[in-house]
């Protein structure tokens, strides 16, 4: 297709939108709603995921051994742990290190006092352990079972199920958003298709003549494809502005008003979220517009 043709198609596409403003606005409206909700859910899911990940990172599980294992046997357990895919990191905590940490925590590092009570003894003699972190906290239970089955492992102290429920909540939000977005997507496609159909019927005679004097299929369809894509483009850019301000306002509000929130949940910076949300949304909007007009023109403009 020539550049001049592209210019022509864009002009015709804009003309179509102007001629049929009401339906065009309705189409844009549903795309706006669609992208807006998508953006809201996307931001929520992103942030919850970030929180889950930070919990995952900080959440460690300790693996204790049967009494009297040799260093080689402990090493072997370590090797077996490495073969479990869901384990992200393994750190060996020697008995001395464990004792140091305990002293630090219980006696605030008051070595004089500790020495006076325990002397050179290490009461945690048998407390060397591996500290594990997981890749996916959702599969924690299964992984813990796997670890328990390794011979030589005495005890695995897995922690609470906070992360577990957070990540399943996240999944729920994900499913809910996908279903709402799918419904809105169908409504958008329907409205775009209607808008294009009206545009075609208004220009029916012109299109018929065009074809009879040698216009190609693509040439006839291009203005409508561009019309659809323009509707999608406008429909995706508008809500992105709204989302950007909303995101900043909401995160600022939450941080300011809930101290717990500040401690427990980390917010992804707006720049980071929108660096991905903007291209995805625009692609999504333009794609929906293109698809709607592609199918419609295919149906109505057969040679």
């Amino acid at each position: 297709m020539k550049i001049s043709t592209l210019g022509y198609s864009i002009r015709q596409g804009l003309k179509n939108i102007r001629r049929n403003l009401l339906f065009s606005l309705a189409s844009i409206g549903t795309i706006v709603a669609c992208i807006f909700l998508f953006g809201v859910f996307y931001a929520i899911v992103q942030n919850v995921e970030l929180t889950v990940r930070s919990i995952e990172d900080s959440l460690t599980v300790s693996v204790f051994f049967d009494e009297g294992l040799t260093d080689e046997q402990i090493l072997k357990i370590g090797e077996e742990l490495q073969t479990i895919p869901n384990i992200a990191s393994i750190e060996y905590i020697s008995a001395d290190k464990a004792w140091e940490a305990y002293v630090q925590e219980m006696y605030h590092g008051d070595m004089e006092y500790v020495n006076s009570v325990f002397g050179d003894d290490n009461p945690l003699q048998n407390s060397s352990s591996f500290e594990l972190t997981f890749r996916n906290i959702g599969e924690q239970a299964e992984t813990v079972d796997q670890v328990k089955n390794i011979s030589g492992v005495r005890k695995v102290n897995s922690s609470d199920t906070v992360a577990n429920s957070v990540s399943s909540l996240n999944r729920l939000v994900g499913y809910a958003s996908i279903s709402v977005i799918l419904i809105l997507l169908l409504v958008s496609l329907f409205l775009i298709s209607n808008t294009i159909t009206i545009g075609i019927s208004v220009r029916k005679e012109e299109i018929a003549i065009m074809k009879l004097i040698g216009a190609t299929d693509l040439f006839v369809r291009a203005p409508f494809l561009i019309e659809g894509m323009l509707l999608g483009l406008v429909g995706s850019i508008l809500p992105l502005f709204g989302l950007y301000f909303l995101y900043n306002a909401v995160t600022k509000y939450l941080m300011g008003h809930f101290l717990i929130v500040e401690n427990m949940i980390r917010f992804a910076p707006a720049g980071e979220v929108f660096a991905r949300l903007v291209p995805i949304s625009i692609l999504f909007g333009v794609g929906v517009g293109f698809l709607g007009s592609f199918v419609t023109t295919h149906k109505h403009l057969r040679v």
Partner: peptide, 20 residues
């Protein structure tokens, strides 16, 4: 896709002109 090329070889004056 050859139909447009065929039609470009033919100029037509329609019975009722079909002007825009």
């Amino acid at each position: 896709n050859e139909i447009p090329m065929l039609r470009r070889k033919i100029g037509v004056v329609f019975q009722n002109f079909r002007l825009l």
